[in-house]
Amino acid sequence: MPPLKIEDETMPVVASTVEEKKTAQNEPKKEYKMEIVWTNLIIHTVLHATALYGLTVEIWRSQWYTLLFAFVLGWFSNLGITAGAHRLWSHKAYSAKLPLRIFLAIIASLSCQNSIYIWCRDHRVHHKFTETDGDPHNAKRGFFFSHVGWLIVKKHPEVIEKGAKLDYSDMLNDPVVKFQHKYYYPMILVISFILPTLIPWYFWNESIWNAYIVSCITRLVLTLNITWCVNSVAHIWGSHPYDESIDPAQNVAVSFFALGEGWHNYHHVFPFDYRASEFRWLVNPTTQFIDLMYLVGQAYNLKYMTDESIKSKAAKAGDGSIHSRFHKTH
């Protein structure tokens, strides 16, 4: 294992303390009436209906090159979120040199999950005020809301108020984030729609229609739902070996599809750990990618939790589901 920078539990991170969480949960409830954002609802409805058509009809008419191409695009678009927007920019769990930051910004644009700045802003608020009214995708409001509903209704006023209090200066000072935020819509148009349609058509004579439906829409909707499962599935189902008092859980199925992001109980307890898990090699491709970038000199200042601190936290607050056979030197 490369020589990593070790941090301890005292490191300030974008996460709520026990006292802050209790305060947020006990604050008087602000008046709130759920309002649908009809434009977003229509967009997501059309996207999902088209993806269903793609899954049931167009994939059988497409060349296997196109299916493989769509899979690769989906994998890298997820990586842009997991290694980029999430672990690098939201949590500063490691540092990256300019070429890697540019690459991650490009593939994050494949995912069409808002600009990096907006994605990270919402994610930091989520960690700071998890499962309170200040949480953008509060799982206490139900599976559908935490999965996709939060994107088709107006934000709770607590989300706006709490979010305004956090510091985002590090992202605003990153020229890559600023550029991607400023040119977000032209970038996703070219990177996520035009190129994925033209490449299969030009290089292996796929029809424009098949390329568009499979490589763009179906791929996009599947990857969106994979990411959303971290907010919904991994906040409802799974074990709590590190802290049984919080809802985020260890979910191996989510980790499998979301490139290692389903070890969610660990991640919410130790959000600055670049591995987002105790285990670097257990269903965690994002961590392996970051390790590779470290070896080629593009990633540095990798942060992780010590074994002793992990075991101590699990013994004090966990549900006892952790297996001692996994406690090995990393």
Rank of each mutant, 00 (worst) to 15 (best):
D174R: 08
S95P: 01
T23A: 15
C229H: 02
S95D: 13
C216K: 00
Y202C: 01
V269K: 14
K140S: 11
H123T: 01
G262K: 10
I42S: 13
I152K: 01
L67S: 10
M34D: 11
C120Q: 02
L222R: 04
V57E: 08
W228V: 03
A249G: 04
H44M: 14
R121P: 01
L88C: 08
I116W: 01
H86M: 07
I81C: 10
L41S: 15
G238L: 06
K311S: 15
L151P: 08
Y242V: 13
R325A: 13
N138A: 06
G297F: 05
E161F: 10
T227A: 12
A93F: 06
T17N: 08
L47G: 09
H235V: 07
V214P: 02
K155P: 08
G84A: 08
Y65G: 09
E35Q: 15
V283I: 15
T50W: 14
L295W: 13
P136G: 06
N78I: 11
H181R: 14
T306Q: 14
T130G: 00
S309C: 12
S95M: 07
E261H: 02
L110E: 07
T218S: 08
L110A: 00
Y242C: 11
P186A: 07
T197C: 01
Y266A: 13
S146R: 01
T287H: 05
H137Y: 15
P186M: 04
K155N: 15
P2W: 10
W281K: 13
I246L: 05
V153P: 03
K5M: 11
V214C: 05
I160R: 14
K128L: 00
A234S: 13
R280Q: 12
V190P: 00
A83K: 02
V159G: 06
P186V: 04
F145T: 06
N138F: 03
H327G: 12
A276N: 10
D319L: 14
S245H: 08
H268Y: 03
H147K: 03
E206V: 02
I290K: 05
R219K: 08
G163Y: 08
E161N: 14
H147L: 04
T39H: 14
E9R: 13
K92D: 09
W201N: 09
K97L: 05
I290T: 13
S207M: 10
F179D: 11
L195T: 01
V148N: 02
S321P: 14
Y300A: 03
R101E: 11
T132K: 09
F272P: 01
S309W: 07
R141L: 15
H235K: 05
N210I: 04
A49Y: 09
I208A: 05
L104Q: 03
A164V: 05
L98E: 05
M171P: 04
L68S: 11
A70E: 07
A276M: 11
T39D: 13
L79E: 11
S115W: 02
V214G: 04
W281N: 14
H240C: 10
D8G: 07
I226N: 02
D135H: 11
H127M: 03
T218C: 02
Y212S: 01
L151H: 10
T82W: 00
A317V: 09
T17G: 08
F279T: 11
